[in-house]
Amino acid sequence: MISVEDRLEVEAFLFKEARLADESRYSEWEALVDDDMHYWVPLQESQEPDSDQVSILNDNRTRLATRIRQLNTGVRHAQLPPSRMRRSISNIEIEKTGADEYVVRSNVVLYEFRRQATKELEVWPARVEHKLRRKDGELKMFSKHIFLLNSEGSVRGLSFII
């Protein structure tokens, strides 16, 4: 069991992370990320991170930095203007995996209004797994894995932070 304080702190992190992603505040979002970050949207539910199977997205820290840099250029057409987004997070289960480390499993439904081209509402339901650690008194994430329900179906452009 984790303490109520731990739970509140982890949930607050998740909500803040979601809000910064929803609002396309790329650099503030990136400040939540630790140096060994793995940001991943696999193609299959049972995929291993290091397999030879292609992923929809598979960023180590360096590639994630490049992604943020590209979004911050202001000329990334895929997010010009940025999608309007709101995501709801529920079914949060927190497991303490070390003195200051947590694995957090949640269900997420992200609503995206695609302003750049088709101006439709797109819905992105997913199972999400965060790995967090406390560093210098603050939580940082060093892993975020997003298992889209339709990852093996047809997937629309996904150029925002999911």
Binding site: V41, R76, S159
Partner: peptide
């Protein structure tokens, strides 16, 4: 290539 790609995501919107 693909929905999140540095290149194709932009081609897609255009």
């Amino acid at each position: 290539l693909g929905p999140t790609a540095f290149l194709l995501a932009d081609d897609c919107v255009i």
